[in-house]
């Protein structure tokens, strides 16, 4: 029974996220989603992203972090401990052009003349980027699957939670990088700004570990821990789904998506 639930959750959540824009969401979202996704796959972007993601993250996991085989333990915790930092580089690389490229080559004005609302365009772009990230993420599923077949039994409840948490984390990263991409016209600026911001938001959770906080700044320490993107990933990483973490990721994604819309709207009156 638990195996059945694990399979349903593991594949159901990403399937839902991919089917949502292509089947159920308004036609404007669908059109933009298909345009963005075919844009990724008709160019080299998708393949470079997918290949680099799989090769780099697996090599880091197996050789840099001595994952799986050094301790001979069927656990992917080290992989998922590393994942937020892999995302810090790869997601800005994927999304840096979301708005900045449109602005740079002037297609943004054309885009907003189509009979679709800005939020539909943004959602289409968001889900297209998310689809690519989920594809990359799920291609690493070969590691636990092959290891399970040949070498040892994993705790699949934990693995499922880790993948679901990674999807939520990716949603946050994409939403944040979209906002930052909308603030600049240059791709390299968008990438650097996004990578630095994500790194800062990921690392601030560890600030209390490396610096002393005076008593009167205790609240600041709590704020750092609470606002860090990596802190909330901890529960998912160990196999626990906590409503606080889900609310945090959904909330942060929604807030940055909203700010992204405001930022796009501001070009009319700035």
């Amino acid at each position: 029974m638990s195996t059945f639930i694990n399979i349903i959750v593991l594949f159901g959540v990403p399937a839902l996220l991919i089917l949502l824009p292509s089947v159920w969401l308004p036609v404007g979202v669908r059109a933009e989603y298909k345009k963005e996704l075919s844009g990724y796959f008709n160019s080299l972007i998708a393949y470079i992203f997918l290949i680099l993601f799989v090769v780099v993250s697996n090599l880091m996991f197996f050789y840099l972090l001595n994952g799986l085989f050094r301790e001979e333990s069927a656990s992917m915790r080290r992989f998922f401990a590393m994942l937020p930092y892999v995302f810090v580089v790869f997601i800005p690389g994927l999304t840096m052009g979301a708005w900045a490229k449109e602005k740079n080559i002037g297609t943004i004005e054309l885009l907003f003349t189509f009979p679709v609302s800005p939020w539909e365009i943004m959602l289409g772009k968001f889900f297209a980027a998310l689809t690519l990230v989920i594809t990359a993420l799920y291609s690493t599923l070969f590691v636990p699957v092959l290891t399970q077949i040949f070498m040892g039994n994993f705790d699949w409840g934990q693995i499922v939670t880790q993948y679901i948490g990674s999807i939520l984390l990716a949603c946050c990263y994409i939403a944040i990088t979209f906002l930052l991409s909308s603030l600049t016209m240059e791709l390299i600026n968008a990438f650097l700004l996004s990578a630095i911001t994500l790194l800062a938001l990921t690392l601030i959770g560890y600030l209390p570990s490396i610096m002393q906080f005076p008593v009167w700044l205790e609240w600041l320490r709590k704020v750092f821990v609470w606002t860090s993107l990596s802190t909330h990933f901890g529960n998912f990483s160990k196999g626990v789904i906590d409503s606080r973490d889900i609310l945090y990721y959904v909330g942060v994604t929604a807030i940055f998506a909203y700010l992204n819309l405001r930022s796009l709207d501001s070009r009319k009156w700035r």
């Binding site: 997918l50 290949i51 799989v54 090769v55 697996n58 090599l59 197996f62 799986l68 085989f69 301790e71 001979e72 333990s73 069927a74 656990s75 915790r77 291609s139 690493t140 070969f142 590691v143 092959l146 290891t147 040949f150 070498m151 040892g152 039994n153 994993f154 705790d155 934990q158 160990k238 196999g239």
Partner: peptide, 30 residues
Amino acid sequence: FTQPLDKIKDMRTYGAVKSFIIGFSTFGVA
């Protein structure tokens, strides 16, 4: 929270399967 990788008893087979898993999941998928 860890479970051992001990389905394979033979050490040579273990090494070969380990290389296959790393190779396939990293370069095979690429």
